[in-house]
Design a protein around this nucleic acid. Sequence first.
DNA 1: CCATTATCGATGAATTTCATTCAAATTTAT
DNA 2: ATAAATTTGAATGAAATTCATCGATAATGG
Lengths: 165, 165
Amino acid sequence: MKFIDNGKVMTEYFHLDDLDRKILTILQKDASLGANTLAERVNASASSCWRRIRALEQAGVLGPHVRLVDPVALGRTLDVFCHVRMKSQGPRARASFQRAMEAEPTILAAYSVSGEWDYLLHLIVEDMQDYERILMGHVLDHESVAATSSNFVLRRVKHTTALPV
Amino acid sequence: MKFIDNGKVMTEYFHLDDLDRKILTILQKDASLGANTLAERVNASASSCWRRIRALEQAGVLGPHVRLVDPVALGRTLDVFCHVRMKSQGPRARASFQRAMEAEPTILAAYSVSGEWDYLLHLIVEDMQDYERILMGHVLDHESVAATSSNFVLRRVKHTTALPV
DNA sequence: CCATTATCGATGAATTTCATTCAAATTTAT
DNA sequence: ATAAATTTGAATGAAATTCATCGATAATGG
């Protein structure tokens, strides 16, 4: 939703009321609840909940339905953040690097960041040997990468997919 | 699943076969599919899929059902990584700091990390003013925090909750 | 090799969920 | 304050989900 005011593009975000917030708070933690259970938790009728959910989906606020997998149960016990500095920052180098990030499934997230490094990567790998393989084979090997610096997660203090609403 | 071998605790992870992997791959991206749709996508019967899902849940591999919310649709457009160094690393200081992280909902993740900083925080906030408020009020204000360094996300190159299986 | 065990796909019944309708209540605008 | 517009919640039927059961099939091991 956008409108122009004084030559500046203003963006008007979806207006959430109390019920929307309650619904989003719950669904971000547990989306297995049906409209009925949800309804009694938020003190509203099932049909109201259902309508709100649909409106939030159509507005693009409420996104995909996913299931989270426990990495530890699969033996992926090493959580790493890897800072990357590029040799060059031209559009071709960036695009090629970003494609390489996209292609490696152990790289869960990749951000272009401000500061002394160009990218920050988040990986969850099996062990150090696995990490070495990926770092050497998919990151350091890339033609535009100048240097990296890895920080290993000692403990996950907090980890949530739920945004404040 | 654990057993002892030569005095060392060995952990045996849940064995995933091809069907399990296909199911996990799909459900990590789209958990709204019913057992029937899922079944035809993985070339198995609905009852097989259903049984596999239940086994994966009981083994703790397949975790919660969540819905993702789009931060941009809510006006939360600033993504920040914040490195934190502590004055002291005693158990009381750590516990108190970790409780403070837990309590602030814009802090989506907090990791204790190796390297020159003690913690790495990931926040999604509305704007710089919002970030300043949280950084000053909830991080720098904490008695055990010595220093912080913030890196702002210029672009989310990749961002997924799906682990490789 | 054959016996044992585990897994498969199909079926079906009890239960839930989904998506709509409609009258009542609430909000908004004039 | 009143009329118009929107939102609400109970009810409803169709569709989907959950879960047990039953032969058939495939894998395992001695």
